[in-house]
Amino acid sequence: MRTLIDFDDAPVFAIPAAGGVREGVLVEGPQGWGEFSPPADSDDALAARWLTAAMEPSTVGWPDAVRGRVPVAAAIPEVDPATAHRLAGAGGCGCARVVVGARRDSRGQDSARVAAARDAQGPGASVRCVVETTDVDEAIATIVHLDTVASGLEMVELSGGSVEFAAAVRRGVDVPIAVDALLLSEAGRVDAADVAVLRCGPLGGVRRAMRRADALGLPCVVNLSALTSIGLAGDVALAAALPDLPFACGPAAVSPADGDVVAEARSLMPVDGCLPAAPMPAAPDPVRLARYAVTDPATIGRWRDLLRRAAAAS
């Protein structure tokens, strides 16, 4: 099937975002398009899984959806409380996902941001946190404190550290702990988490992610890992196909509002807190694709090389 996909002419794109420019490649197959956007420092095995995910919609297609829309959380990065309040109240999302530094010098800012998100969301909505520390004691102290500030956290995602770190934090708190499904699977430690975090790209596509979820046997939350609406459609397809979806999806790292390669009418933006599921991604819009196309030969060459290595390893 790879012989039907033109890797050599696949367009490389760069989308501007708050955290810096994010890059990737669009691949076209017999049935449509996919997005290949692993971290630039990915090894061949990880890149191969991202390529499998990118090729899935353009070759075998996605599994049938069991829901037409999926709820998504509002993204609250490390911003001031006023901005956090505005972001939490936008898009009609019933959940806010707040990033916290979990450092002694950030405790006040973290608390203010979580309190602002809770105020904007109201008592009937959910607030979850992403804790960015690998210190067990700091993580536990932060979670216990913010659980009180938020009048109850839905869950806490641990963005770094080992499975042993996650297990130690989980033993020290009463808040559900969410850990990346790939980390849990590779370590064989489902006791380290209450919730498994599924990401379509790193897990190798919708089907492989669903198999991981089934093997782990934990409640799952889907985090959107793609950069464009072409890739986000795969994340949404995963959430739409899961038998159970107890949580709103984690928001995308790059919002289509920052820039997208599909037509504005096909851009995946939350409406009433949800994103629509589709049987296949939208095709890129030529004008928008040209706007974000990379022309630097060195950058194109780097992505072509990663794409070739991913294809050889998959």
Rank of each mutant, 00 (worst) to 15 (best):
M1H: 14
L4H: 13
D6Y: 09
F7C: 10
D8R: 13
A10M: 05
F13I: 11
A18V: 15
G19H: 14
V21D: 12
V21K: 08
R22N: 03
E23Y: 12
V27M: 06
E28L: 07
G32R: 00
E35N: 03
S37T: 12
S37G: 12
P39R: 07
D43T: 08
L46P: 06
A47K: 03
R49N: 05
R49Q: 10
A53D: 01
E56R: 00
E56A: 00
T59G: 05
T59R: 02
P63I: 06
P63Y: 02
D64H: 10
A65C: 12
A65F: 10
V70T: 07
V70Y: 03
P71H: 01
A74H: 00
A75K: 09
A75M: 12
I76Q: 02
E78G: 04
P81A: 03
A88W: 01
A88L: 07
G89I: 07
G94T: 13
G94Y: 04
R97P: 00
V98K: 03
R107A: 11
D110Q: 05
S111P: 01
A112E: 15
A112Q: 15
R118G: 00
R118W: 01
D119C: 09
P123V: 13
P123R: 11
G124L: 14
S126R: 15
V127Y: 00
T134F: 05
T134C: 08
D137F: 08
D137K: 14
T142A: 13
I143P: 02
I143M: 10
V144W: 06
D147P: 03
V149K: 11
A150W: 00
E154W: 04
L158R: 11
L158V: 05
A168L: 13
A168V: 01
V169F: 02
R170N: 02
D174W: 09
D174F: 07
D174T: 13
V179G: 08
L182H: 07
E186V: 14
G188S: 07
G188I: 07
D191E: 15
A192N: 07
D194G: 09
L198W: 04
L198A: 12
R199D: 08
L203D: 02
G204N: 03
G205S: 07
G205A: 05
R211P: 02
L216Y: 04
G217A: 09
L224S: 15
A226H: 09
A226Q: 11
L227H: 10
L227G: 00
I230S: 01
G231W: 05
G234E: 00
D235C: 11
D244A: 12
P246M: 04
F247S: 01
F247A: 00
F247Y: 14
G250Y: 04
P251M: 06
A252Q: 08
A253H: 10
P256D: 03
G259C: 03
G259H: 02
A265D: 15
R266N: 11
L268G: 05
G273S: 05
G273K: 02
C274T: 12
M280I: 08
P286H: 08
V287K: 13
V287S: 15
V287I: 15
A290M: 09
V294G: 02
T295W: 04
D296C: 14
P297V: 06
I300H: 06
G301R: 01
R304Y: 02
R308V: 10
R308E: 12
R309S: 08
A312Y: 06
A312V: 11
